[in-house]
Design a protein around this nucleic acid. Structure first.
Lengths: 110, 110
DNA sequence: AATCTTTATCGTATATTTGCGATACAGAAT
DNA sequence: ATTCTGTATCGCAAATATACGATAAAGATT
């Protein structure tokens, strides 16, 4: 009963899905939104903004970082995160190439 | 220990997250990809293409439909799905308005 | 050096997702 | 009317995700 067959799909499908998964939680959207709105990286202010415990926020940040959506250096009692725009560009490109190219051939059939 | 505080975020954040969640699995990406490549809706062919059992595919289709990414009519022994392009446009718009508008102010700081 | 502050990690409880087989359902075919 | 065919749903097992408190880690402050 080997649950989870994600590996059996193409790399492209897996990559897109992984990016989507990273932004599939409102808290992570909120974090990215905060990071996007500032020119500079911010640190623990995110914890004050979100309605979540510090450990939970840290966990979400880790997921975003693991997925490559943000970069972050944590030196000592202070850490600094910022958006990895290249990852976003790649997602946009891949997403559009998959779902947008046939839009003009759009024939509503149901 | 009230797990899951998604409700405490803004509607916009929840909507974006919900869309992302819908496409956060390779199987669902694959399904959407197949639907996008055809002008007509297809039915059980998806089951033949994906490395998953029929019941599992049906479940993924249901999730996509519930999330509003696809439309589907099932009449009798045959069902017909197709992509809801408007939902995709909305996602693209919301996504870009959240994450793209400050790209030019991009100051790499870490 | 001892303490403070900030962030990461661990452990754990609960909720959700994924996947399959079995079965129900509904129109089509015989 | 009975059988066939394609799809949806149910029930269950296993994997993942979410959240928090407690604790560790590491530089800053005193």
């Amino acid at each position: 009963m080997a649950v989870h067959k994600k590996e059996e799909f193409s790399a492209r499908e897996q990559n897109l899905a992984a990016f989507a998964k990273a932004i599939s939680h409102p808290a992570r959207i909120a974090i990215l939104s905060v990071l996007a709105k500032r020119n500079q990286c911010i640190c623990g202010e995110i914890v004050d903004i979100l309605p979540l415990a510090q450990s939970t926020v840290s966990q979400h940040l880790k997921e975003l970082k693991t997925a490559g959506l943000i970069d972050g250096e944590t030196d000592g009692p202070r850490s600094c995160y910022c958006i990895n725009w290249k990852a976003f560009e790649k997602f946009n490109t891949d997403f559009n190439s998959l779902f947008e190219k046939l839009k003009e051939a759009y024939a509503k059939c149901c």
